[in-house]
Design a protein around this nucleic acid. Sequence first.
DNA 1: AGTAGTGTTCGGCC
DNA 2: TGGCCGAACACTAC
Length: 245
Amino acid sequence: MPEGPSIVILKEATAAFAGQKVLEVGGNTKVDFSRLQGKKITAIRSFGKNFFICFGKKLSVKIHFMLFGSYRINERKETSARLSLVCSRGEMNFYACSVQLLEGNLDDLYDWSADVMSDTWDAASARKKLKAMPDTLVVDALLDQDVFAGVGNIIKNEVLYRIKVHPKNTIADLPAKKLKEMIDQARIYSFDFLEWKKQYVLKQHWLAHTKRVCSRDGDKIHKEYLGKTNRRTFYCDTCQQLYGE
DNA sequence: AGTAGTGTTCGGCC
DNA sequence: TGGCCGAACACTAC
């Protein structure tokens, strides 16, 4: 569920809730949702892995699904919802997720050009941010939500495999051409992910993530926990190039 | 059947 | 001050 493309799928599935009024609110979240009662949803938005239900320009619900979150639209699960919004023409139910109320204008709270799924994605801006962090490992850079909002661990592994870059490179190690490929493919792979996920064929397109053998050369795919967050990293030592020294 | 993981935040410690 | 680390969260595919 959690990576950016999955949130785009949710956004598309809930687009029709814009304009609807909240008739009933419930859930086991600690946030004070009573103030949403009777309000009209003005927009459904997303930024990276975050999903937003907007009530005018000054108040939004932010939902982050973390590792385990889930949702049901116009149906319910057995387990109790973290947040449930029954609206004029349907209902949204969210489970095991982080819920926050955000005050103020969403436009001012995020750098929307950092969202790899966004129409306003700005590759030049991403490049500039990366240039300012030369010693950062590429695995950490790809997971940096300020640079590549929406990119998660699967996309990280698949992008590096696709562009044949070894995960132990730093940003400064990469030739300019490879850095550009990394930035471009972060977005392109995310849209591939979106299409595959919609068709329920995402996993069968994985070439590195959870794989044991390289589809290019038949060599072993290594599994190692890398980067400052020690996330699972799958890579082929043979075809993914290490540029440092 | 137990384990590990599509993620992030927070508090404690050095 | 800040970086690092583990816990917490709470579900489910393999």
